[in-house]
Design a protein around this nucleic acid. Structure first.
Lengths: 201, 201
DNA sequence: CTTGACACATACCAACCGGTATGTATGATT
DNA sequence: AATCATACATACCGGTTGGTATGTGTCAAG
């Protein structure tokens, strides 16, 4: 009956991708199960076979879709750098250089979910905060290495500064989404870059 | 029948206050009309007499609840200062000194709505962005005055920097909400303060 | 060849949603 | 005193939601 018979992991992946897109567009609460099924051309039988409920689907999206993307984009480039400031500057320049930054249209998937779900559901909050804290930790340890290598001022509080950098970046993305302006986005990234310069020794 | 007869503006205000709280808790889409009515001990007749639909109620909350509060808290202190950096530092210290910052629990009402509604509804986005831009403009003009008075470096791009400052602040609040940590909140505000110092001449 | 687990599809449901239509008490106007 | 708009209250409605119960085709094991 189905075109692709007996390929459960592919089906699951299709559901995750569609759910990721739908959640990114409308948020978790407003994300429609029916819309996800329409996008995937699947049925409720398939979805509820792979996920016990909507919440589990959302959590799976966080762990299996958002986390790996964020890791590839933000964690890996800072993984073992001795010059975190230069690496982050390069990262910001690369993001600013995109001709159609997708984050300006719909924002950062992680931040969107954090703002929506954290005050509403403790399980969601803990998962999202775990991912966020991992990010902050990556930046923090990179800054610590930068202090050792002499790129970063010794006075810099690595933990607080890392938290602030990630916060400011998410803030820039969020405000640019609201403004719907790539120009504002690039300007905000530029100012964040200028701030990073002040951390140099 | 009703205890307070013929007091339409009071009724309207009660609806706005309850709607503001409900929206702050659950976001606009998830805000329940029935819950607002339960909180106010009113009925649908009252609500739909004062507001044509839910959307109009939400927009009224933005203009009549969020805007004045934001203006009192953030606009007025910077209105005519010649030392914007000092004024903002004082503002940040005051916010950090609160023993139970309400923004850590539920976040900034403006930012919450921006993140949720901007990609979904253009009317909402324009209203929210209007308020946000007013905020940025207040900061921008304060920075401009600071440049004139000699407090702020001349190289500072007032417009971009103002956008960044507000973005970073909203970012700090949002991330702290997610972390549910007053300590993180204070640390983030402190780092924002250190950034402001770098704008000094 | 049969059995049974897996991977779905179909049909159905109670709950809740925003919104509306109608009824009614009150106060001001004429 | 009669009229009428205001300011609500009550009852109701269609649509959508997430979720479930049941049916069915496929494949692997025995």
């Amino acid at each position: 009956m189905n075109a692709s018979v007996k390929t459960p992991d592919i089906t699951r992946l299709k559901l995750l991708e569609a759910a990721f897109a739908e959640i990114h567009r409308h948020g978790f609460q407003a994300a429609s199960i029916m819309q996800i099924l329409a996008d995937t051309e699947l049925t409720k039988g398939a979805l509820y076979h792979h996920f016990p409920d909507k919440k589990a689907l959302g959590l799976a999206v966080i762990e299996e879709m958002i986390r790996p993307r964020l890791a590839a984009m933000m964690f890996d480039p800072l993984a073992e750098t001795q010059q975190p400031l230069a690496a982050m500057q390069a990262l910001l320049r690369a993001k600013a250089a995109e001709n159609a930054p997708w984050v300006v249209a719909l924002g950062c998937p992680l931040n969107n979910l954090m703002q929506e779900m954290s005050p509403l559901d403790e399980v969601f909050r803990l998962r999202l905060n775990g991912l966020f804290q991992d990010w902050v930790t990556v930046v923090k340890e990179a800054l610590a290495r930068g202090k050792k290598s002499g790129e970063v001022k010794k006075e810099v509080d690595a933990a607080q500064t890392a938290f602030f950098i990630v916060s400011a970046l998410e803030g820039c993305i969020g405000m640019s989404k609201n403004t719907q302006s790539v120009e504002a986005y690039r300007g905000c990234l530029k100012q964040l870059g200028l701030y990073l310069d002040t951390l140099k020794r």
